[in-house]
Design a protein around this nucleic acid. Structure first.
Lengths: 377, 377
DNA sequence: TGTGATCATGGAATGGTTTCCATGGAATCG
DNA sequence: CGATTCCATGGAAACCATTCCATGATCACA
């Protein structure tokens, strides 16, 4: 280590070579385990490297080699526990394969997603795992055009054809709707994700078809269009409870909106599981700790992360793997286990007029209420 | 874009320069906004760059320049909501300043921390923000010796002198203990963090001194030594409730251990806030959603992240900023708001013998119970 | 002993970008 | 109109690690 005043000068392979009394070429061969090296050289170079605490310059290596041994992971929001878990599993799985993960947080904004994709491209990551937002415009298209190995996770973009790992929300949502129907619910409120994301669309479609098949109320007023954010869950509950004929059960399309919804139910002193049933998509560890414990539609984030890395490695290797669809399943807990008489639920609503179902038809034009822009998950 | 079969060849600044009809030098000057460029050249280069969808090779830039415009953030566990939030704020604050954040997840293991530090050093990040684990050995020392700008966040390592942003746990914990004392509690159980981390030590010291000053029971059996992980919170509750004279209130040193603790309290059908009071260190959004809402000692993760970036930038600029200590404060919610008669709490314990305080003295040798290795937060 | 093979080693080129230095042209002023 | 300045531009070096190619040495075998 050469110190000039207080500024430390980087030590290069030449320094190591010099100290070991060999050429940089030999030093490099020793480092990379090339067979054509003498035991003496190996020992001296190793000693010199550790003596100088040599860390090869990754930029220079990447410039010379084609690989950077790094992958990019683009998520819409790290604060969403689902994506925090995903980041964790992807990162661990990648590490095992010798890759470092660069985490990019789109923060639910397309411009930040583009900015991160830009830096990931500039850094020449070997591949990218993305839970994309927006349509297929912007840098996400550059990715494909430049032939950068890409895999979508959780979400997809229909206009862009890359391997993906997604969840079959259909099965879980169908189970949830049937389960609620069995308990006697006929009017299920649905807090939907944004229709600009594939997950938002898929889950909504699954809900709609499940409702139709089960013969429950298809009143469009029962659907609130949220944005996968906590605040829109709150707004959704407000809106749904203000209906003249409010739902007796709620289904939230992601965990954050469920959190927002629960907060409002508490504030309104509605007893979850008793006054109103509640089920959320996405299983979060502490949902089981709520009182009552929250029923969820669960899907394995570990499998998703692990498989995403697996697919990406195959794409990097030049393969064209098939997309994978993971199952979802209903986990019934106390928030949706007791039968509710329709009357009990009607009580629960604010000062609503009971049998004014006629009114709802009049307001149906404003049925799907938006919560703002397209957001995450 | 030049395509050879299916393999896309990287486009370089030479390609852009050629298309624009200028030299690479001029093209470079245009890109970096160098003033010595003619309007005509600027226009032609800009056009060529966008035409070719040129993304400069960050490796080559970093090799040439000294800066990489990236910082490393090393956290012990992304799945811990506190560190997920920290990652988010640091990343956003850094982005504003033009830096990309490389997130490293030590996953609570020293060897992984060393591995990540290694790659961060190799990638020549301009600086590192770390919530370190372990003593000052390993690559964390290399950081300092190489003069890599480093800032500690949340935790510190006493043998390593770098600027830091930490929380003054003292104030919040003192408030919590006094608050519980006011409610009539005399035996407060403490689920501690590992003594191998500065936060574990600080919070424990604060608890001990607050207990002494308030004149409450200093029975060492009331302290369970956890590891900041959820499972150790569960184990702690088990251990503390098995005491012959169990605590009537619990204080957990972080949110994850609180989660584990709550799970067990539920399982044992103890009513939080009624049968036993509970307070957790770290405020997590949904703690307020629990029923009853959880009292917490809150500290601002936003401030912590923001200031950490601020400090790091100053270190990078050659400055030697002072460390910052942020305040903590008690937020009282329903989990610790009602007065409890000592008898009521004793009931809550398992089949414990009431006034066998003599026994506890006998077991004191096994007083501080370990939950395993040193872990995170 | 000589020839061929084997093998460790060093020199030099390469990758993409930036920047110093020199050049040449245009513009300005006397 | 000539001299001076300014300024845009291009050539080339530098950053650091890797690898091809050539060199020289050693060894074995005929």
């Amino acid at each position: 280590m050469i110190t000039t005043g207080c500024v430390v000068v980087d030590i290069t392979i030449r320094d190591v070579a010099a100290l070991a009394g060999v050429s940089p070429a030999t030093a490099s061969r020793v480092m990379s385990g090339h067979p054509a090296t003498s035991p003496a050289a190996r020992a001296r170079v190793a000693a010199a490297a550790s003596e100088l605490d040599y860390h090869p310059n990754a930029q220079a290596q990447a410039l010379r080699n084609t690989r950077t041994d790094s992958i990019g992971l683009l998520v819409p929001d790290v604060r969403n526990p689902f994506f925090a878990d995903l980041a964790h599993t992807v990162e661990q799985a990648a590490l095992v394969e010798g890759y470092v993960t660069l985490l990019g947080n789109a923060n639910e904004r397309k411009e930040q997603q583009d900015r991160y994709l830009d830096t990931l491209i500039s850094r020449r990551v070997d591949g990218i795992i993305a839970a994309p937002l927006g349509d297929g415009s912007g840098n996400i298209r550059s990715l494909i055009e430049r032939g950068i190995p890409t895999v979508f996770v959780d979400r997809t973009i229909s206009s862009i054809d890359v391997p993906s790992v997604t969840t079959d929300s259909e099965a879980g949502i169908r189970q949830a709707v049937k389960h609620l129907a069995t308990l006697g619910h006929t009017r299920i409120g649905y807090i939907s994700g944004p229709q600009t994301t594939s997950t938002g669309r898929d889950r909504f479609a699954a809900f709609t078809s499940a409702i139709a098949d089960t013969g429950l109320s298809q009143d469009p007023e029962l659907v609130y269009l949220g944005d996968f954010q906590s605040a829109s869950g709150s707004a959704g509950v407000h809106a749904l409870l203000e209906l003249t004929d409010p739902p007796t059960a709620l289904l939230a399309a992601d965990s954050l909106m469920a959190v927002g919804a629960i907060a409002i139910l508490h504030k309104r002193s509605l007893r979850i599981g008793t006054d109103i049933a509640m089920i959320a998509f996405d299983d979060i560890e502490w949902f089981a700790l709520l009182n009552p414990a929250l029923s969820v539609i669960s899907h394995s984030v570990e499998d998703m992360g692990r498989i995403a890395v697996e697919l990406l490695l195959r794409v990097i290797a030049g393969d064209s793997p098939e997309s994978v669809v993971l199952p979802s399943e209903l986990i019934i807990r106390d928030s949706s286990s007791s039968c509710i008489a329709p009357a009990a639920a009607a009580e629960a609503s604010a000062p609503a007029i009971q049998s004014a179902a006629i009114q709802s038809a009049a307001i149906q034009s404003a049925a799907i209420q938006s919560a703002g822009e397209n957001r995450h998950e």
